[in-house]
Amino acid sequence: MIEIDALTKVYGAAHAPAVDEVSLRIPAGSVFAFLGPNGAGKTTTIKMLAGLLTPTSGQVRLGGFDVARQRSAAMAQFGAVLEGSRNVYWSLSAWQNLMYFGRLKGMRKPRVAERAQDLLTDLGLWERRHDKVGGFSRGMQQKVAIAAALIADPPIVLLDEPTLGLDVEATRIVKNWIAEQARELGTTILLTTHQLDVAQELCDRVAVMRQGRLVADLPTRELLARFRERDRYEIRLEGAAPPGFDAVTREGVTTIGVRVNEPREVYDVVERLRAHGAVIESLTQVQPDLEDVFLALVSEPSHAA
């Protein structure tokens, strides 16, 4: 479990807080998306969580251990793949990397070797375990980085943009693997990503940060449901759209997008179309996706969770 209480970071007295009184509870075994635009304070929060930055105030507990006061025990609970860095040594082989990072976490050599074999086999890297990581594809390097984060079998794993720069196949493998770690092994996974489809697919719960503050922290379904008040509908027509309607025609199909505040407003639109003699082929409610929700949250003044 990850517990963050009133976490605040101020870089210099003259600056606004980079992270401002953020509190979160991430239950064990869940996949949690931590989202926000650039500069929202995500990275600062993650660094405080990883013990790399000292908070100005507030507290982070990993598996019940305070990162500031019980650093050693807290770090034993934790593995991370950080975005924008190699995370592993390119001049070493996959095997040597895992042996190093496992022992750095305090594991004994035979136990690391056993775990490294399991991880490399699971990730399809066993045959190339003695090759230098620098010669691997981006996807393989990312797999080694994830394996290094998981080598000590930590109950908590932080994955910062784990699928960034990966091709479709590698993204699919990493996504499946994340889901498996959480659902089958009970690992708590904190995921940050700009690929919101990945977050929507994988995460049980989503938190969104903006300007150092949390603007949402809800289960994914509930968050999406909250934004159904802005329901959108899509009406497909046979033939051209009547004048006065904003329509898009693609491959002979005319589509009108309708945004309403109340569902009954859809009837008014349908009536207007019928009055113009338009033939409706289908009418579909468009569900908001995480991208819509995210954009709404980060662009509007306040959306307290």
């Binding site: 025990a73 770090m75 593995g79 950080l82 860095s85 190699r86 995370n87 750095l104 976490k105 305090g106």
Partner: peptide, 14 residues
């Protein structure tokens, strides 16, 4: 530069 320095700090060791 590579980021392995940061990664290596996340150890239970001092």
């Amino acid at each position: 530069r590579a980021g392995t320095f940061t990664q290596a700090q996340m150890t239970p060791a001092p």
